[in-house]
Design a protein around this nucleic acid. Structure first.
Lengths: 250, 250
DNA sequence: CTGGGCATTCTTGTATACAGTTTTCGTCTG
DNA sequence: CAGACGAAAACTGTATACAAGAATGCCCAG
C-alpha cells in the first residue's frame, strides 16, 4: 500500500515474493526470531511485516503459534477465485473504458516477455510475469483501491496454485493473455470479459484438479535470494545493529 | 479478519467504531502514547492496531509523523464509491442466487431497527445500522473475502460522509434499504442491482455535494465511550500493567 | 511397550528504553 | 511586525528484556 520504503516494507516484499514464487511452500513455518536474523532486524519489525502479510492472506498467524505461509482450504480457494473473477471483470470494463493506445503496446510488450521467459524455461520468472500481467491491467483501470484488491487476489491465487496446482503452471496462459490483449484492443467489453472469465476458469481448474506435492527446500537459502537490500551488515543506516546471537541453526 | 480477540483487536474495534460513527472526525491526530494510555496498553500494541486500521484505509499513518484518522481526497472518495458499487452489485447477485427465506426476515428486522433508530433521532446508531445493512448482505453472499472487501469500503464510505457529507445522513436510506429487500425477495437480480446502484449513487451524491464541517470534540472523552472492554485497571489478565505516567493531558 | 505427566526448550506477547525526527514556540533581528 | 533561528517538547522507529504459552522429549508407572 503506502509506498513507505521502510525496512518492514522491504521484508514484506521479500517474503511476499518468496511466497508468490512458491519458493516457500504453503505451511512453511516463519518464526519471528529466524526471520529477524535473516533480515537483520528485530522481531518487532518482522512481526509488523507478518501482520501485513497476514492481512493480505499470504500468511497464517494464529494467536500463540508460529506464523506459517498460508494454506487456504479448498473452500477458501474457491472463494478467492470467485472474487477474483468479479474483480477482473470490472477491471476489463474499466480498462476498455479508459483505453489509450499506449496500453496496447505496453501489454504486448509484457506478453512478449512472458513468452520469452516461458521458452527459456524460467519457471520462477514465468510465474511472476503471469501475475504481473493482471496487476498491470489493474493499474490501467485507474482505481487504486480496485488495483489493491486485485493484487491481493492475484497473489493469493499464486499461493493456491502452489498448494493445489501442478508444478509448472503458466504455459498456455501466455496465449490466453495474448487473446485478452487483442480483445481489449478491439474494445469489445463483452468479448474481453468472456475471454478473461475463461482464462481465470482455466487457471482455477488447473489449481483445483490435482493435489499438491512438497518440494525439499531450506528456509535460509531460499530467503537469502530474496533478502537483497536487507541485512547488509555494513549498511550503517541504522544506529544499532541487532545482536544476532546466532545459535547455529539448531 | 481473524477473530483473534486479542487486545489489539479490541483497540482496533474501538477506534474503528469511533471513526465510522464519525466521533473522531477525519484528520484527528492519534498519538500512540495517548491511545496507549487510554486503552491501557503499550505503544507496541497501539501501533499494531493503527497499522491494521491504516491497511483498512481508516487511518493515515505517514512515515515519521503522527497517525490521523484518514482524510480521503475527493478523487479517492470517488474511487472508493466506484469500487463499492461494483462489490455491492456482485453481492446482490450472490445473495439472490443463494436466497433463503430466512434472509428476508433477517433483513426486514434490520430495516425495522433502522427505522426505529431514525425515529428516535439516534444519529450514531442510525449511521451504524445503515452500514450494517450492507455488511449483513455481505455475509449472506457467502464469500468471506468479498465480505471483507465490502466491509472495508462501507467503513470508508462512512468516513467519507463524515468528511464531505452533511451531518445527519441516513434518512431516506431506510426506505431505499426497504426497497432493496423487496427486490431481493422478488428474486429479480437486475431490478435489485438497479435499486442498489441508485442507492449507492444517492449516498455518493449526498457525500460529494456539500463540504464538511468540524465539530468540537475531545479525543479522551470520545474514546472513553468506545474503550469498553479495555483499560479496566483491575482486569488482572495481564502480567504487567503499563505504567501510565500520566502527565496531565499536556 | 505405552500413555501420562513433568522438565526443557522454543516462540510469541507485551512493555519499555533510548535514539532520532518532527513540531512547537519563544526570542531575536532586520 | 514578519521571518529566521534555535532549543525544548512531542512523537515515532527500533531493539531488547522478561513473562507466559506451546511444543518437545524424557522418564516412569502400569
Amino acid at each position: 500500500m503506502s509506498k513507505k520504503s521502510t525496512r518492514v516494507a522491504l521484508a514484506c516484499q521479500a517474503l511476499r515474493q518468496a511466497i508468490i514464487e512458491q519458493a516457500l511452500p504453503p505451511g512453511t513455518k516463519l518464526p519471528e526470531d529466524e526471520l529477524g536474523l535473516r533480515f537483520g532486524m528485530s522481531r518487532t519489525l518482522v512481526r509488523e511485516a507478518l501482520a501485513q502479510l497476514q492481512s493480505e492472506g499470504l500468511v497464517d498467524a494464529p494467536p500463540r503459534r508460529t506464523a506459517t505461509t498460508a494454506k487456504p482450504t479448498l473452500d477458501q480457494a474457491r472463494e478467492i477465485f470467485e472474487t477474483r473473477r468479479m474483480l477482473e471483470r470490472e477491471v476489463v470494463r474499466l480498462v476498455i473504458a479508459r483505453w489509450r493506445p499506449q496500453f496496447g503496446a505496453d501489454l504486448e510488450g509484457h506478453v512478449r516477455a512472458e513468452e520469452t521467459a516461458r521458452q527459456a524455461g524460467e519457471a520462477r520468472v514465468s510465474i511472476r510475469l503471469a501475475g504481473e500481467f493482471h496487476t498491470r491491467l489493474g493499474e490501467m483501470a485507474g482505481n487504486s483501491l480496485l488495483r489493491r484488491y486485485l493484487s491481493e487476489v492475484v497473489s493469493r491465487c499464486s499461493l493456491i496454485l502452489a498448494l493445489y496446482g501442478r508444478p509448472h503452471s503458466a504455459d498456455c496462459a501466455v496465449n490466453e493473455h495474448r487473446e485478452i490483449v487483442a480483445a481489449l484492443r478491439a474494445g469489445n467489453a463483452e468479448t474481453a470479459i468472456r475471454i478473461m472469465d475463461h482464462h481465470i476458469g482455466s487457471v482455477e481448474a488447473r489449481a483445483l484438479l490435482d493435489q499438491g506435492r512438497d518440494a525439499g527446500f531450506d528456509l535460509g537459502t531460499v530467503l537469502s535470494r530474496y533478502a537483497s537490500g536487507l541485512d547488509e551488515p555494513g549498511s550503517a543506516k541504522v544506529a544499532r545493529i541487532p545482536k544476532a546471537k546466532a545459535k547455529g541453526k539448531r
